[in-house]
Design a protein around this nucleic acid. Sequence first.
DNA 1: GCCAACGTTGGC
DNA 2: GCCAACGTTGGC
Length: 164
Amino acid sequence: MMRPKPSQAFWLMKSEPSVFSLNDLKASPGRTTSWEGVRNYQARNFMRDKMRVGDGVLFYHSNCSVPGVVGLAEVVREAYADTSAFDPRSPYHDPRSNRENPRWVMVDVKYQEEFPQVVPLSAIRKEPRLSRMLLLRRGQRLSIQPVTPEEFRIIREMGRERNS
DNA sequence: GCCAACGTTGGC
DNA sequence: GCCAACGTTGGC
């Protein structure tokens, strides 16, 4: 009897490499980090309502010389209170959030692989099969975005190719 | 460093 | 509830 495979969703998560890079994730204890600091309601809702253990993550470097997807990660813990909001010394402090009623959540994300080559935003733009990605929408700033299984697979293939 | 596009805030 | 002002994001 086949056990039904749990449905897996896919995401793109942005990080500024000067703040937290894929290498930082790889170097973290257990190659895992809590994705603290999300202060956008739409992104929070994706984490809180949709992200499940085992979901695939495209790790995207933003605000850098070559913005693009640099590798893969996976969700290893589902949403829980973002404690950085409670810390007055944290850059992510939010006095409107408290332990009794946390406003912000985070998930845990684990390193999976670094691509042999970055998949730059410019290459994503040029790939017709990726033309519908949220990432390419004008003015799109969401730091956590859903991607389709096809988009995930295509970008993974692009990243794993050694010569393009 | 510029600045367009966006989300949030707060006066009214 | 409107909307101007403001702060942030993020490519370039």
